[in-house]
Design a protein around this nucleic acid. Sequence first.
DNA 1: CAGTGGTCTAGACCACGAG
DNA 2: TCGTGGTCTAGACCACTGG
Lengths: 243, 243
Amino acid sequence: MKAEEDLADRTVVPASFKALNIANDVRRRIVEKEWQQGALIPAEADLAIEFGVARATVNKALQLLADEGLLERRRRGGTRVVVNPVRKAIFAISIHREMIESAGKLHSHRVISQQVEPVPAEVLARHKLHRDTRMVHLREVHYGDGTPYVYEDRWINPAAVPGLDGADFHHLNANEWLMAHAPYLRAELDFSAANADAQDARMLDTRSGNALLIVTRATWNDAGLVTHVRLAFRPGFVMAAEV
Amino acid sequence: MKAEEDLADRTVVPASFKALNIANDVRRRIVEKEWQQGALIPAEADLAIEFGVARATVNKALQLLADEGLLERRRRGGTRVVVNPVRKAIFAISIHREMIESAGKLHSHRVISQQVEPVPAEVLARHKLHRDTRMVHLREVHYGDGTPYVYEDRWINPAAVPGLDGADFHHLNANEWLMAHAPYLRAELDFSAANADAQDARMLDTRSGNALLIVTRATWNDAGLVTHVRLAFRPGFVMAAEV
DNA sequence: CAGTGGTCTAGACCACGAG
DNA sequence: TCGTGGTCTAGACCACTGG
């Protein structure tokens, strides 16, 4: 390629988002059925020539679409348009305080109880723990402008959380304290719904039987289970995801 | 670098997952507090030397951790460990049939009603549609081994879905038909909980008042809104996410 | 076996923004 | 201003796997 052509390329694409542009173009071709579901699309090398870029750039673009679930790629087998794409929804899991403050409310929290206790059978079974396991049982409510937002029923594993004894959760809530002192390597999340029981209702200042969004979260670091927590959100709470 | 050193590198790392290994190593340093929260970590070029790889490889690794929410990167400002990491949970949004079949159940579905109607105010407001908008209103129930799994109350926009008139949803359910005929470019998801009303209860073979997990989903293509759907899952249904 | 995607390299230019 | 990350290139070797 001549030097002047190089210069032309640079000036034509000043903002330099070639990979993204290619990804958008390919996505459009799929949505507009130019490339049918299940069909093979051209090889990276061919697309690189068509778009006038390096193969690595095409690779980055197609990798992006494969992560989105739109393409399926195999060595030697080429790249196909997926028939029933499994799209991914992404939740941002921020700390309660940020969630409440981003809604324009003043955040506060209250510790309901905190003591070392035997772990209930339900949690034991879920994480295949030894039946005599004892952990720190902590219950908190988080408020926005004084109104309950979420009731947190949490078990913390002292074996995986150094410095837990000295923690004062009245000052800094468990959610943020753990983020700062015991970052996790892996997490599991479950979403479900439940009718508020008497305790839920009392904590969230609502009536028994009201439908609550329940999130169960467990996190691990290299020392094992860090914490298992059941979050009960106030009635009407909506959690939004991006796709 | 000499040729023999090159060869040595190749044989030392036969499986070639350098970027992933570097990402794991950096993640470990963060979790083990070797690099404190809020602290600046070495520049890409320095890490490239330390790990003995090209800068692009370090860039790929750090980009991965930035996507996870663990690092914050700025030109000229360097790369910092995030203080309150906003981790991301990922839901796989598969079609109902696959969800039910992956639970080992036999999938079936039933169309409850299908007709063109004015769109209710709630949906109009949500998507800022014109007040006289009419769409196809479709209600379906999906079953696993004959037991109701999810009740779907759906609005489909004919303007964005060519071929909608000829669709037979008794044969192929709307969920899969739309996936095949009207792929979307963008989607929004909301998770909440609601007490089953009389209709929910009838469709899901349960009692009024039972807590249901509700997912509201809207999808768009380049012609506008494709479909708006409210999914009511049977009581006890749990949706799992990865982090 | 041969063609595909997966990954890495060394180098380059650029946009951004802290100092 | 100038060091940082963001992106791209041309080339290379390799792992996998369909024909």
